[in-house]
Amino acid sequence: MSAVSEQQATSPAEPRKGLSPRKKQRISRVIQYAVLVVILVVLVALADWKAIGESFFNLDVAGKGLPELFTVALRNTVIYTLSGFVLGFVVGLVLALMRLSSVAPYRWVSAIYIEIFRGLPMLLIFLMIGSLPLAFPGFELPGGVYGSAALGLGVVSAAYMAENFRAGIQAVPKGQLEAARSLGMPHMRAMVSIIIPQAIRIVLPPLTNQLVTLLKDSSLVLILGVTAAQVELAKFGNDESSTYANPTPILATGLTYLLITIPLGYVARRLEARQGAGR
């Protein structure tokens, strides 16, 4: 539309030749709704609802996965996730302290570690861990699949958490360390008792998000080759759906993930909002 007609349209004194902006907006909205309705009608008319229901919402098949979906698969997913998180937390904290060390080689080692493990796909890490026995025949990680899963998830999340912790430690006001040191606390004691507890509070939201990421990434444990007792959600859903030649279990698995990830995401946002308000 030309600038001239637009000007005319917005000028109420002139007799209108084009449409007013408000009218145009209304027409555009009507069109959008119309498109939506057409798509819905077409979907309803064309889709084979019976087939969809039997495939994706087949309660018989879903029922066969119970209670193992929760007692085995979810349980293992939670174990893999938490063990990876704990390892990542501890290693990440150490890496963050190294990153902030006054000893340069510590800083370098930490920086290199962080760059490497943030730059690699988690899948590749699991492939590497799975191939360790090829490189060192007879070699086995302590804890078997559980140990390998914790290692894979831990070494990668450590790199991310290290960056979170570093930012958190740097966000604690300098006066806190000075106050602690002025009371005679050695540097390490001041870090452990005064700085790190405050830093952890600050990084609680990103750590919660990190937990969500780990929960999803724990699905990669299937690369390691797991027994029926070690199966986690994704592989469980996949196995069940092959067994019954029906995709419902995969959908059920997805819902189970969401059961945890959505509340966790909510918690993270709440924590974030509370910190924002506290400033």
Binding site: P173, G175, L183, G184, I194
Partner: peptide, 17 residues
């Protein structure tokens, strides 16, 4: 650290934990 134990310090910004 031992010497600082006997020197109390009070800051402008309080610096309570």
């Amino acid at each position: 650290d031992a010497a600082r134990r006997h020197i109390g310090m009070v800051f402008q910004q309080f610096n309570l934990f």
